[in-house]
Structures are given as C-alpha cells and as structure tokens.
Design a protein around this nucleic acid. Sequence first.
RNA 1: GGCGGCAUAGCCAAGUGGGAAGGCAGUGGUCUGCAAAACCACUAUUCCCCGGUUCGAAUCCGGGUGCCGCCU
Length: 313
Amino acid sequence: MPARIPCSAVKPRVIVICGPTATGKTAVGIELAAALGGEIISADSMQVYRYLDIGTAKPTAAELAAAPHHLIDIVDPDEPFDAARYAALAREQVRAQHREGRVPLVVGGTGLYIKALLHGLFGSEAGDPAVRRRLAAEAAAAGIASLHARLAACDPQTAARLHPNDTARVLRALEVFEVTGRPISAFHRTHRFAEDPFEALLIGLDVARERLYERIDRRVEAMLAAGFEEEVRGLLERGYGPELKPMQSIGYSHLCAMLAGRVDREEAVRTLKRDTRRFAKRQLTWFRATPGIIWLPPDAAGEIQRRCRAFLS
RNA sequence: GGCGGCAUAGCCAAGUGGGAAGGCAGUGGUCUGCAAAACCACUAUUCCCCGGUUCGAAUCCGGGUGCCGCCU
C-alpha cells in the first residue's frame, strides 16, 4: 500500500510562461488559463502600475475579461514597488489559487520577479529608503568611486565582485551594510536562492531573433497608433512626472523626451524601437541562464498544453 | 566619348609611407528590495581587384572594375 502523502506536504504547482517582450506571452497565458482552469498572475514590473496601459502592452479589457488576472494595476505610478513586494503578493496569490484548486499561471517577462517568487530574496528587513536616498546623494556629490572604495573596506568580497561603475549595486550593498551591520555577501552566502516553496514548470516562448525584432518594431508602431503619446501626455498632466520610476521605463521615457522637445519624433521612435530590442536581448540573456526552462514557439499551443497537463498530473 | 571625384566593418566615417580613430547598428555577459533599471565586454589577420615602387603601402605609381558629378 503506498503511503498517502498529506496534502500539506505537497508543494503548490506553478506554471510559468516567460520570455522576452513581444513573444505573445499574454495570448498564450489566456489560452492556458481557459484550457487548464487557471488564473493568471502577472510577472511584469511595469504592468503593476495603474494608468500605464498602452506602453506596457498591458492586456486589453477584452483580454482581462477572458481570464482572471492578478497583480496588474495594483499601485499608482508614484508608489514605491519592488521585487520583494512582488514576491510576497505573488506567493500569496499562488497559495490562494492552490487552495481553491486552480492552476496558478505566472506570466511575464521580469526575470527578477519570477526568481524572487520562486526562490525568494534574502532578509525581508534589509532596506531603508532614507539610507538609500542619502547614499544616492553622496554618490552624486562625491562620485561613485569613493563609495566603491568605502564598500571595499566593509565588504571586500562584494567590492571585488562589483564593477566600480555599477552604481545601483554598490549603493545597495552599502545600504544593506549600514542598515544591518552585516555585509551583503554574508546574506548572499546564507540565502543562495535556496528557498523552493513551489514546484514549477518553466516554459519560455522562443521566437527567432530576426522575427522577434520585426515584431517589436511592429508593436511599437501599433502602440503609437493606439494613442501611446496621448497616454503619456495624460500622465504628465495628471502630475505623474518624468522623474517617477515607471515614467523612466522604455517608451515612457522616450515620449517624455519628445514631449519636452529634447528629441524629435523620428529620433524618439527610432530609439524607442532600438531600446526595446536591447531590452528583449537582455531578457533573453537572463532567461537563457535560468535553469530548467523549456523553450517552445508561441504558436505551439498543443505542445505547450501537453507539457502543462503532464506536469499537473 | 572626354574630364574630374570617390571606393575603408551591416551603415556613416577619420586616417595620405611604419600600431586600421570615432559614431550608429549589432553580439555576448552580469544581475538577491528601483530590474522596461543599472553595469561590463566584444565587433575590419586588413582598407574594391591586379601588378609595381619600397626594408615597409589603406596611404605612392600603372592598369582594371564600380559609383557619382561635370562636359561634348
């Protein structure tokens, strides 16, 4: 007689649909949600913001109606949001769906968010916006080199690992040290992304580079035709300025520059397309390095469903 | 047909006798609380072709080919 595994010991199963931008993740997710009886948990660092719709390629009203979506439109553009908060919310959502017998479908292209959801981040209290602001001001005044030197004194291991120009990470490492009194390398050593609360099937949508770039160019044109510029103007009029994080993202920053008269339309569109292509390339680099991803073409609906069903049974 | 100019990476382009600048585009990578962010690295065994001069030629000379302009 095989021993029965108690329900509480079974890890919730999660299906993740990832890959670079413009590969058709949204459509695949909706299809799967219908086929498998699941709900979509977005893994997109920009679609969490309200009012940023066209430029983030947020699912349309029709798409949102076709399947339940979570973690879209959950914060205002001027609210802070980060990977830790995402992971907490997304885990909650996965567990809720698991309890109710639905299939959690994580769909999105933000690699760090997916990693944080699946494997956690170290120390939930290791951060302080005030310290962060002060360090950023110091870096702006004294130069990042001096802060890198300071890091070398308190955390030589991390200083050696980080390039002196990598302002964001040098600041973060110093912030952690100031707030906790421990070097970030010590946290990394004990954490190591060892959390593993879910059983995950990772499917990456694979589109040939050349075709992907064509799709990106076409999608940018479509966004502009759909009123992207109006959307950005509206955000600015509402008081959401170009200094906000989401307004510095791809597309929003380009159109802000154009509306401010710093670049002409042609240049804005050219760099917007280019920077989207570069973004897709970086996503590809991230996901290529993620172990366990099964790469399938987005139009292989049958094969994708087969894999999911096999995973769930 | 004649005269002149130009041929250097996917594109633009500097270089006029001795290590092939730079920009754009592209490629690979890093990533533990801003990640659509931030950061790093790479990208012409060779300068249109053939021959010559020279210790040495992208650079000078001759011929060829192609493109552009002007003239008849």
